[in-house]
Design a protein around this nucleic acid. Structure first.
Lengths: 228, 228
DNA sequence: CCACAGTATTAGCCAAGCCTAACTCTGAGT
DNA sequence: ACTCAGAGTTAGGCTTGGCTAATACTGTGG
């Protein structure tokens, strides 16, 4: 009996909960009921109820009134979904003409329907990529994941030349705007100016200057061009 | 108000019922509860209950103790699913290395998850095919469908030279066996012999002779090579 | 150290979809 | 015309996964 075996019949709901909880506990820090509810757009009692069921399934541990934490089994199941999601996104962008702002919604549905076989075929067709179109790392089939160290553009120093590594995918509008500006992963830019107290960041990329609000600069992650 | 508008939020279950009913009523002949139950592997009361709901949704008409018949709305919804299913099959075989015997199960799940956009992108990538890998016709996005006239190989006359057009996809084992024999849609063969009373059919295709049981010959549909 | 704001849980409800058991209808054969 | 097998439906129950309303816990400020 394998302690980290994932029950082979998880429902869509369960898969979504696991993914959400994984996202909410970067360092294994427990996730709060209310955070899960907000992320999944559900009521708090619904989350309480599901948390109970998931803990009975051995997918997470729940300390009442404190928070939840994925077990190793739960983490594997969550990473499996993350892998699927990101590979599907990469595949749709590469082979079926999707843009990086529309691909999330499609992947959100497909990730529950594809077989492991299909996921691996897509990975092979893509040449086993390590990041998705937003720069998010794709976990390995074995559950390994390498989160590269990045800093928000909002915290880069003036004069620094950095490469865009990763952009938060959750708001299509924002992605469209960034694509319009040509600020996508892989692009190298120089920070010309940064105003304090949430002021804008001015950057130069591909010969063009752009002034970016602090909020936006917070979700564009950059790293020195050679850092890998 | 459009009388044939399809409610935009059909559940997987509902989609499966519509597809099953469509399949069971070739000429608009009503489908029996028990047939639907058998096809979907459900109990008869479950079907009765769902039929009631579907008829309230305006997707079908139910004459108690007689049978059900899709409305125009229901037929459109069913054809939409059939189109999805067959295009997905064609796409997976063409681009992701699926074989014709394994593709059905994958399509069965994906057809509920893909968006119309994705379906059309796949259709475009395939060059808008008119049949799937088993030779089944793919309905148009407008709900049109062209069922070509074919006859079972079991009914072909001795000496006739015909082309394989279509093979029942429901049994993977059978598909594997036919592929092994090289008897796939598009292949031209000559009927060398046919024994009466459910006896085997002997054919020659690509220089090889094969003896095919009557049951199998019943689900391999053929037509004269030039009939379109 | 107590009150109270905010968070979490419990209680109780509902719809979708499935089930089995029990009843009802239909039509074929006598 | 009647019976009776088989098909169909109704009754009643279960699980999943939502909801709102009510209750309980936690920790911070006075």
């Amino acid at each position: 009996m394998n302690a980290t075996a994932v029950p082979d019949t998880l429902t869509r709901s369960v898969e979504d909960y696991l993914k959400a909880i994984y996202r909410l506990s970067p360092e294994g820090r427990p996730a709060a009921t209310s955070e899960i509810a907000r992320l999944l757009d559900l009521s708090a009692p619904s989350v309480s109820g599901m948390v109970k069921r998931l803990s009975e399934l051995g997918l997470l541990e729940h300390i009442p009134y404190k928070g939840v934490q994925l077990t190793e089994t739960g983490r594997r199941a969550a990473l499996r979904m993350v892998r699927r999601h990101r590979l599907i996104e990469a595949y749709l962008v590469q082979f079926l003409g999707y843009s990086w702002d529309t691909v999330h919604a499609e992947a959100e549905r497909l990730e529950h329907a594809v077989s492991d076989t299909l996921v691996e075929r897509m990975a092979a067709a893509l040449g086993h990529p390590v990041v998705d179109p937003h720069g998010d790392p794709i976990p390995g089939a074995d559950g390994s994941i390498h989160e590269a160290a990045c800093t928000p553009l909002a915290e880069a120093d003036i004069g620094q030349t950095v490469e865009i590594r990763r952009v938060d995918e959750s708001e299509p509008e924002r992605l469209r705007y960034l694509a319009l500006l040509g600020l996508v992963p892989g692009v190298v830019l120089t920070v010309l100016d940064r105003q304090p107290f949430g002021g804008p960041v001015t950057v130069e990329a591909a010969g063009e200057r752009h002034s970016i609000g602090a909020e936006l600069a917070q979700v564009v992650l950059v790293a020195a061009g050679d850092e890998r």
